[in-house]
Structures are given as structure tokens and as C-alpha cells.
Write a protein that binds this DNA or RNA. Sequence first.
DNA 1: CAGAAAACGTAGAACGATACACGTAGAACA
DNA 2: TGTTCTACGTGTATCGTTCTACGTTTTCTG
Lengths: 341, 341
Amino acid sequence: MASTEKDKGNRRVTIREVAEDAGVSVAAVSKVLRDAYGVSDTLRAKVRQSMDALGYRPLAAARGMRGQTYTIGLVLPDIRNPFFSDIMTGVNNALERTQYRALIGISQSSATGEMAIVEAMIDRQMDGIILIGATEDRANLDAIAARKPLVAVGHHEPDITTFDTVNNNDQQGGQLVVRQMVAAGYKRIAMIGLKSTTSTILAEREIGYRRGMIEAGLGSAINIVQESQTLRDVQITARRMLQAPNRPDAIFCWTDFIALEVISVATELGLRIPEDVGIAGYDNTVYCDFAQNGLSSIDQSGELLGLQATRLLIERIQGRSQAEHFVVPPRLVIRRSTSPG
Amino acid sequence: MASTEKDKGNRRVTIREVAEDAGVSVAAVSKVLRDAYGVSDTLRAKVRQSMDALGYRPLAAARGMRGQTYTIGLVLPDIRNPFFSDIMTGVNNALERTQYRALIGISQSSATGEMAIVEAMIDRQMDGIILIGATEDRANLDAIAARKPLVAVGHHEPDITTFDTVNNNDQQGGQLVVRQMVAAGYKRIAMIGLKSTTSTILAEREIGYRRGMIEAGLGSAINIVQESQTLRDVQITARRMLQAPNRPDAIFCWTDFIALEVISVATELGLRIPEDVGIAGYDNTVYCDFAQNGLSSIDQSGELLGLQATRLLIERIQGRSQAEHFVVPPRLVIRRSTSPG
DNA sequence: CAGAAAACGTAGAACGATACACGTAGAACA
DNA sequence: TGTTCTACGTGTATCGTTCTACGTTTTCTG
């Protein structure tokens, strides 16, 4: 009688019961919960004890009606890239001693993409949003930022004032790769980018690549191929590039996953790495280090990016309204794939 | 004046405004929202139109106070394994035409682990939870299931009645690997498992391995090494195994990531794959297919698992209370790493 | 055609927390 | 002594939905 079919188990302890148990007002308990002004140490202790004794946990939905939910949303384009795992680690480290929790949404797999998952997060009263590798245009990002604190990771827009950004210096990253390739003796250095008009990090890496080529006097050899990210397309593109009459002797891939696939294609074509063709990636994901890959790559300190993004977001939630733009320097990790001789 | 510092932008449209605009009661709008009984087509149309015109979106926090939040929680042990991406795709496909949204929590990175993230999800009034690769014991799982609909993916407990499970047949998977290795001529087949007392899928795979060995008359060569999942430990273990006097001529790794690392170590030791040592993994992640890896692996149809888990969960949310246990057959994908000669 | 049942719609009380407006006690100051 | 602060607590309206209870209209049935 007391519990219907849908009523799973014992009811939750409410703030009212805590208040009663501690012999104080509901408002006092709420204050303790929020670390708000106006509670003495003795009262706090009493309340805390009652909370523990009763096993009280605040209900986020109810909190959200008036205040915060202490939840931040992390939007990832997909889950496949292990680089995002590093970011996530940083986020969770930053959240360690706070009341906040991070929940992840995947934009790629969702029907209408990034905007849909962001709207869903706003509907769920998240306190702020970290957008990773944003594909939305400025207008949409502004629309989000107008409603919730927003931090974009992997999105260059240094003059924006409505939200914060956290990046590595992708331009410098691209340049570092080319410099090392040149130093290793490669000349016909190509780049594989992404068919995308919205990725600012890609644009930056391309600029870096161009700069590197030009400063090495290889301006005439600049060769950027843009392809979608599906395995099939990458294979076709890589094959075409590597079978061309004047094929590149090195390829800088905008992300590791592509680079690993290019290694695969090159191997199948009987080309030796790094002697016949040098290959480098970006993100320094865990797979780079495997002996069978030995992939040179740019490390952009994902954990630090995640940590910093979270800090900035919480600052925003707590009231900061001036934009901040954080940039870490990239670091090239040289491995076998670009070390001939 | 109208908006304070924390009041980001324009206020949301509420159900009340929709009701007013449509000239009906608030309750009627709510009924339309929930596809509840007792609304005529004309009323529904009127309300829908007003909702569109005003750009109304229901606030999950408010819904959660009385009813559902239309949110399901997906708990992953970590984000690094691309296999989880397949599951996620299945989940999102299943959610396609529903009001539900999936949000992901990562248990590994969180301080107190799985239980903490599940509690956080319950605090946030999620309607149900999908737990992937559960590490909690039965008592804890029961405690969760007592409060919210629960589906465990990658957790064998076929006699449990309080929640549903979705699995591939891990025992059969292990057996398939051994059979193929035996057929390929390997004899001293070892297995690398995980240092864990709670993973039932691991236990099943081990049983499959044993079965396979015994049925091939190799019972005396059974050799299971259990190691943690950190890169460093795997390296050390792999090195030790491959440098032992009577080293295995094939290694079945409980998951692809370990297998790739073992390939790496073997390569560095100058062992040829598959001639000197055969290697197989589990999950058939995207990296298996790369030419430089060519890793044989078990495909357990992650997408199907995710789809099915979601369906079962929604059934549970809608009232089913009898347990269901879904199992897909595994499929061995043979590649170079176990194909000598 | 009466009566019952089904369909449609409404009003208003929850849900569990927060936040605002206030009250009170004691200290500090003139 | 009276006034003004400050620190600490309390009472209660409120957030945006859902849900229960209950009227009213329409449709069905014998």
C-alpha cells in the first residue's frame, strides 16, 4: 500500500527531516548546504551531524528550481579519441573537492548534433558548459553563452568576450612538426586536414604548417588535403597521396587517429616508415607510444586543458563576466615515425 | 535592472505561458507534453502550435520534482576504450525518437568510484541507469536497483532478479580464441587477465580459455596471468612472460588495449608476430584493423549491446519488474596476429 | 431515451530545495 | 542610556512542472 509499483524503495530523506532532527529551521540547513553566510560553527556542526546520521543527500532537481544544480556539462564530439580522456581527467581533478559533478554528452551521435545536446543540458539546469572541439558558429556559441557560463576547449576565438577559451597553441604545434620534419631531411611535406569550415583549431594547425614550410623555403611544396574523418575516406585519400607520381615524403596528420590510419595504408603499400615516408600526428594519444606505431606527435597537455577549463568555468559560475583565454604551449614528442637514418 | 549579473539573458518560456497562449489550462499542456490520456486532437494541435511559436522547452528540474526527468545515466569505467563508443552509438540510436537523453559519467576518475557517480546520478533524478563493466558487488548493485531501474552491461549474473543484464557470451568468446589459436598451430597459449575480483566478464573469459585449452588436450599448459591495467604494469608483465625460458607461443589478452601493448613489447624484443608469438584481443576495436597491428579479436557487437540495454531500461522505467538477461554470441575476427604460415 | 461509461478538461495541491525579508541578541560606540 | 552595527537564525513565498480529484460533456448501450 505504501509503495506503488513505480515507487522504488524507501523515500529520500529531505531537508525538512534534517532540520527537525537537528532542531533548527529548514533555512538554516539550506545555508549549511550552500556554505552560505550566517551560520555559526556550532549550528553547522549540529546540522552536519544530523545529515550524516540520516544519510541526507540534497536533491539536485529541487535545488535547480531556485539555485544551482552543481552539475557541469561536458560536450565531446565523440568518445573515440583517447585525448578526450586526458581532458576528462583534468576536469575531474579540478572538481575533486567541490560539490560539482561533471556529466558528459556526446554530440556526434546525437541526431541534431552539438546544439541539441547543449540544449538538453540547459533544460537540465546545468550550471555551466564546457564545449570541446566546438563545431558551432559564433552566433550559436554566443546564444549559449548568453544563457549559461561557457568555456570552449579547442576553439580559437581570442577576441571573443562572451565566453572563455582554453587551447594549446595549434599554430605553433603545426610549425614544430614541420620544423622537425625538415630537420630530419624531409622535403615534400604534405598535410592531411579535415573537411570542415568550422574548426578553428584545424585552421590554426594549417597556418602553422604553412609558416613552417615557408620559413624552410618549401613554400612551393605546400600541399594540404582535406578529408572527412571516416575510416574509409581517410584510406582512399592516403592511398591516393602515397601512390601519386611525386608522392610526399612526409605527412603531417591533423590528429593521431588519421596518422595511424596513414601508417596502416603506407605499410600495406610496402612503404617503409620513416625511410620512405615520415608521419606525424597531433594529440600524443596513448597509441603513439606503441612500438608498432612509434608515432611522432604533438602533446597538448589534455589534462591541464581540462583542469584549466573547469577552473575558468567555476569562476564564471561564481560571477566573473570578463572573458579569459588560456593557451598552453605545445610540445613535440619525436618518435620513430619521423626519425630516419 | 531587470537582469542581475547572474541572470543570464532572457527568461525561459514556462508551461503557464504556453497554456495562456493556447487558451487552455496548464494541466492540459502538461498532458500533451507527456502524451497522457485525455487530450483531443484539436487541443493537442493547439498546444503544440503554441509551444512551437513560443519556443517552449520543458525544464527537466521542474519535471523531476513530480515525475520523470527523461534522462538516463550511462556509467563508464573509463573513456579510453573505443569499444564504449560503439555501445554509446547503440544507446543513442535507441533513444532517437524518444524524449530521453543519455548523459555519461566516468567512474574511474571519480574519487570514490562507481558508487559515487551512481549516487550523483540518482541525486539528479535520472530515470534509470546503465552500468557498463560494473565493479560493484551484488549488494551494492541491488541497492541501486532498489531505487532506480538498472541495466548492467558486461556483468554476468543470470540469476539476478532485481535488474537486467546485457552481455556477449564471454565464455564462448574465450573458447573461440583458443580454438583458432590451436588450429593455427599454437600450443603454449597463455592468457593475460585483470587483477580484479569483481569482473564477472573476465571470469567468464577465463573459463572459456580453460575450456578451450582442455578440449584441445592442452590442459597442462594453462597459464593465466593477472595484471592491473596500467600501461607500466602491462609492459612489465608482457616482458617477463615473453622472456621466460619456456615462453608462450601465443597470448590471449582479455582486452584489445592490452593486446596492442603486448604486440609493442614483443616487437621491441625482436619477436615476430605471428611467427614467434600469436596474439589476440577482445572487443574488436577500431585499432585492431590497422595494418601495423592486424590484431585478431572478438567482436561483441557493442552497438547492439547498447541498443538492447537501452530498450530494456526504458521498459523498466515504464514499469516492467521482471528481470531479463540478454546475451549476444561473440564473433571472432581473424587477422594477421594469429595467422602464421 | 435513460443511465452508464468514456472522454475531455480544469483547479489547485504537492514536490524539495533556495532566497528574500525579517527578527533578535549582543557588542560597540557616543 | 540610547543608537547603530553585526552575526546568527527563522518563516515562508517561490521555482515549473506533474498529479490527484473532480466537474462537465460526449458517446455508448440495452
